[in-house]
Amino acid sequence: MKRKMSQKRRIGGLFYTLPAMSLLILLLIVPLIYTIYCSLYQFKYMMKGNFVGLNNFIYCLTDDRIRNSMITTIGVTLAATAISIVAGLLLALWIDKRGGLFAYIIELIGLVPWVISMVVAGLLWRWLFNGDLGLFNVALRMLGFKPIYVVQTRIPAIVALIFVMSWRTIGYAMILILAGLKGLDHSLIEAARVDGATRLQTLFRVKLPLIKSQVLLSTIVLTVSNFTNNTIPKVLTSGGPVNATNVVTLEQYNLSFMYYEFGRSSALSILIMLATTVIIACYIKVAKYEI
């Protein structure tokens, strides 16, 4: 009787998860497999052509523009993520100490850039950086500097892209790291203090090692999010000037919807996927998920 009951409960558990899991499998897993299949064929528009083996992959890895876009993406991603994590960590350490309403205000203000849409954020920054009328150049001129035409100049465009990407995620990084700090066992810090550790020693020898995995997890989440972000480059700089901010996901988008090379864009999607899979593998290793 008991056995039968537990059997029924086991199947019941599957029943609860079935609707959600079938959707996840149908829309996250199956499309991936289908794309692997498509990446092996030539496509004209949406019409499947000849089997071409790994030619699409070879094209993606040898084409100069795509290769440059990969390098740009890696540079922008690393820079934006590093800035967000360092700033987020400093902010988290600081407001964790302050606490109260003060911390709450910083948390809310910090999250605003993350809750508004990337199209809107990109558009508003584009307006601030805009030619002569944008607030940025107005301020520069009032301070006696020469205006910088951000979106039209190579280096400023890249810097602006990195800036807006990190601007968006600093608060989010802060909140995620704060989670680790709030979960700390305060008796450990007290013990270090009692044993005569200085503030810096407590920070570097006790606090930071204890929140290490939380920081690492935030880094991974932000890396994936920045690596695959194509909305901000699309809206802020449209990949220009002269491909200076042409990130790989933008290239993937253009391959599909400007050149209609769906075989090649499938192959590029798989390559992007492989890169993110490596990052996600680290995530799973660090996260030590248990259920």
Partner: peptide
């Protein structure tokens, strides 16, 4: 678990889901 970072950058799934 894999879905959390995967869907956070939904543009990874953009072309796959579009074609499918």
């Amino acid at each position: 678990v894999v879905g959390i970072p995967l869907s956070s950058g939904s543009s990874v799934l953009l072309i796959p889901n579009y074609m499918y």
